[in-house]
Design a protein around this nucleic acid. Structure first.
Lengths: 158, 158
DNA sequence: CGCCTCGGTGGGAAAAAGTGGGAGGAAATG
DNA sequence: CATTTCCTCCCACTTTTTCCCACCGAGGCG
């Protein structure tokens, strides 16, 4: 697992708005934890399904190491490396807990103003709002899915 | 199982009302137990069938840890992670035993005023009242169900 | 029958967070 | 070398959130 202790995982969904300069205000409840973990330093990169991933820098560095250890000749692995390591951008919380997202990253995720920030354990996912809603509905409809349930999930108990 | 001793499981159905700010008063009979278990800290998240799940924080953290250990590249697992961890929200009992539910969570479960709080072992389920009634009837009718009973249930004895 | 207590409900004020704009400085360009 | 543009840091305003207090109604007890 990551560098993040179990009891300090990121979770929850937050409506966020990017201002005209492309700044994202991290919800205040996460800020203290982020400063503890990485002195406010974060890495933003892209995900296969058109959202952004935001890691505290130490957690990202571990993932990057693992990524780069994957077999370089395998096309799948190279694709992942190019996508994720290639787009990884260092950012830092400003005095008001905001980070500046480059036009490239915003464009990748289709972000203009309204976004949703999703806590996912040791990272966040940032989605354009409409895209997130669409996906959410898709997932909820999707009962077809349970048909071929992977064995890890067969025995899972909530 | 969870962190909850057998003899302190939550059970029973309670009519509850959300006030205009979205606050839910936990029935008083559960409060002391919740404060013992988690100093009043709870995690609220969503369920696939449009209701909310409410766990004492320690119980939730165990589930979350298991969820996030599932393989990240598997679509099924990601879906579950995004839905459940993605919507998980920390809340705390206020001085009057109430918790504040975010607009997002209320919207998800279709909650405005009238709800039903169902004790379910180490967690609660919160349903919009009408939706609960409808489901209850459905289950009682329940023609389709008994047909293909999974083997875990074939041998189950009440 | 009235009083008193407890659980439930609503609202308001102080504090904190979100948002936008602007000034100063660095880098790039003519 | 001067000028312009872009970026970053800082300040001020507005909105939201959080915490606290007061009321209402029902049920139990004297």
């Amino acid at each position: 697992m990551g560098c993040l202790p179990m009891n300090s995982m990121f979770r929850g969904a937050n409506k966020v708005t990017l201002d005209t300069k492309g700044r994202l205000a991290m919800p205040s409840r996460y800020r203290e934890r982020i400063r503890e973990l990485s002195q406010g330093r974060l890495v933003v990169t892209v995900d296969r399904d058109q959202c952004l991933l935001i890691y505290p820098t130490p957690d990202w560095e571990e993932i990057e190491r693992k990524l780069m250890q994957l077999p370089s000749l395998q096309p799948q692995a190279r694709r992942l490396q190019r996508l994720m390591v290639g787009h990884a951008t260092d950012v830092e919380l400003d005095a008001h807990g905001r980070v500046l997202l480059s036009p490239k990253l915003r464009e990748f995720a289709g972000l203009s103003r309204a976004g949703v920030l999703i806590g996912q354990g040791n990272r966040f996912e940032l989605w354009e709002e409409e895209r997130w809603k669409a996906r959410e509905e898709e997932w909820l409809q999707g009962e077809e899915a349970e048909a071929g349930l992977p064995e890890e999930l067969e025995t899972f108990s909530l």
